[in-house]
Simulated assay, not measured.
Amino acid sequence: MFIAFAVVTVITIALNAGMAIADFSRARFVLANSAEVGLSPSLLPLLATLKAAGAAGLLLGLLGAQFIGIAAAIGLVLFFTGALAVHFRARVFYNIAFPGTYFTAAVASLVLAVMRIS
């Protein structure tokens, strides 16, 4: 069980850290997607910080601070629930798989982290 938890958590950390870097650097695809869903580019640093904090919290959870990891996973689940809602509101469905993948990874990390302490 620990191996599944570790693998899924490391993948979720990598996904979110990578997207935080893309958001901080204002990558072209990030700016295009933000404009398409009606998100102001001025929000990108905040969103990047939230993703980076989630990744850091998951890392701490992986290293033994289990409740911080669970809190980070909950935060990421909520974050990507919002991202999916924004995509639905804007009716941008062709790339819904991206926030869906991040949401799924966050949910999997949360479930495995909770199962680990049970």
Rank of each mutant, 00 (worst) to 15 (best):
F2Q: 15
A4S: 13
A4H: 10
V7Y: 01
V8D: 01
T9L: 05
T9W: 04
I13F: 04
I13L: 08
L15R: 09
A17I: 10
G18K: 03
M19E: 12
M19D: 13
I21V: 15
D23V: 09
F24H: 03
A27M: 11
A27V: 11
R28E: 15
V30K: 01
L31P: 07
N33V: 11
N33S: 15
S34N: 11
V37K: 00
G38A: 06
G38P: 05
G38T: 07
S40E: 12
S40R: 15
S40M: 10
P41W: 01
S42E: 14
S42L: 14
S42G: 12
L43V: 13
L43P: 00
L47W: 10
T49P: 09
K51L: 04
A52T: 08
A52H: 02
A53K: 02
G54F: 01
A55F: 01
G57Q: 07
L58A: 08
L58M: 11
L58N: 05
G61M: 01
L62A: 09
L62S: 07
L63T: 09
G64H: 05
G64S: 03
G64C: 05
F67T: 15
F67C: 05
F67Q: 14
I68E: 07
G69W: 02
I70R: 02
A71W: 04
A71P: 03
A72S: 01
I74P: 00
V77Y: 03
V77N: 05
F79E: 05
F80Q: 08
L84V: 11
V86Y: 00
H87P: 01
R89A: 15
A90I: 03
R91K: 15
V92M: 08
V92F: 00
F93R: 12
Y94R: 13
I96S: 10
A97D: 12
F98G: 09
P99W: 03
P99V: 02
G100Y: 07
G100K: 07
G100P: 00
T101R: 02
V107D: 05
S109T: 14
A113F: 13
V114H: 04
R116N: 14
R116L: 14
I117K: 07
S118G: 15
